[in-house]
């Protein structure tokens, strides 16, 4: 059975995410990012940022809600029991600060089969309230036993 590729090129509705300072701090605490600029607005402003600023990998937090819609779409049809996160890339742009309102759009870039493995590649593009790109993510999920 050939792998289903109908969803290639499909984009999903943008998903909005309002950044709270507390969420940035919670994330920084968990991953061990110790700088005061992730906790204290004054420290962040002294370093040249508008407000408490997120560490780069906070991109996961505001991108994931948009990814969810794509991953669970039946047109994509991934078998979650056999899925692993295979690879990830982020390219960062404008820093993300507390009170930013981000919009993330996900597109299915490719679905390929190689040696019985299905490679599902999604791109997420996140922009802030001024239209500046904050991150571009490439998410590769691998599903075993697709043929």
């Amino acid at each position: 059975m050939a792998i289903k590729t109908d969803a290639v090129g499909k984009s999903w509705e943008p998903v909005s995410f309002e950044v709270e300072a507390a969420r940035i701090t919670q994330y920084a605490d968990v991953v061990g990012e110790a700088s005061p600029i992730h906790r204290d607005a004054e420290a962040a402003r002294a370093a040249g940022y508008r407000d408490v600023v997120a560490p780069p990998m906070f991109a996961v937090v505001y991108s994931l809600p948009a990814l969810g819609a794509a991953l669970f779409d039946e047109e994509v049809g991934m078998d979650f029991a056999r899925m692993v996160h295979g690879a990830q890339e982020f390219v960062w742009g404008e820093p993300v600060c507390a009170d930013d309102v981000l919009s993330t759009t996900v597109t299915c870039k490719s679905i390929d089969e190689r040696a019985g493995l299905g490679f599902y590649v999604f791109e997420s593009v996140s922009t802030n309230q001024d239209g500046a790109e904050t991150v571009r993510g490439t998410w590769t999920n691998i599903v075993r036993g697709v043929s």
């Binding site: 990012e33 600029i37 600023v53 560490p55 780069p56 295979g86 690879a87 390219v91 960062w92 490439t138």
Partner: peptide, 22 residues
């Protein structure tokens, strides 16, 4: 992996791109 780079750079926002395989 990200933190290893920002700590080396001495700047929490120094990272511009990171690609990995799990």
């Amino acid at each position: 992996v990200a933190r290893a780079h920002t700590e080396a750079a001495g700047d929490p926002l120094a990272l511009k791109r990171l690609a990995v395989q799990f």
